[in-house]
Amino acid sequence: MQRTTMDLWVGLFVMAGIAALMVLSLKVGNLNVYNPSQSYILTGNFENIGGLKVRAPVKSAGVVVGRVTDIQFSTQTYDAIVTMSMDSRFIFPKDTFASILTSGLLGEQYIGLAAGGDEDMLTDGDKIMKTNSAMVLEELIGRFLFDKAAEE
């Protein structure tokens, strides 16, 4: 085979490979949606995080605006400290309400943010004060049975 033909094919192959990596990053992955290099950190204390995991999305109005980067247990307050890395394009008021929600009945858990009306905005390293714990199925059932028993 001619040297130049071979070079051409190899060039095309390498370009196809790099294009495939680009497609994976931009079209399949979330590199265009969420760029960790431009982000700010928020924390929040939750009484119960249920099944929330690191890397779970942080959504507001259903749009992904950040990700959970760390979950720690605090021995001072005896609750969970959740660290979120937020996309710096989206900023939220100080009185934003964070709750742990479930997508669908059995889907993955995520943090839902409901914006408040405060004029001050949350900045890097701030703590979300208003949080709502995860709904835990066992507690729900337990409360339901307790209420039933009390009625009778």
Binding site: S25, K27, V28, G29, N30, L31, V33, P36, V64
Partner: peptide, 12 residues
């Protein structure tokens, strides 16, 4: 759905 679940650093 794909984009919200596939993370660049962890998956790709």
């Amino acid at each position: 759905q794909m984009q919200s679940a596939v993370d660049f650093r962890f998956d790709i």
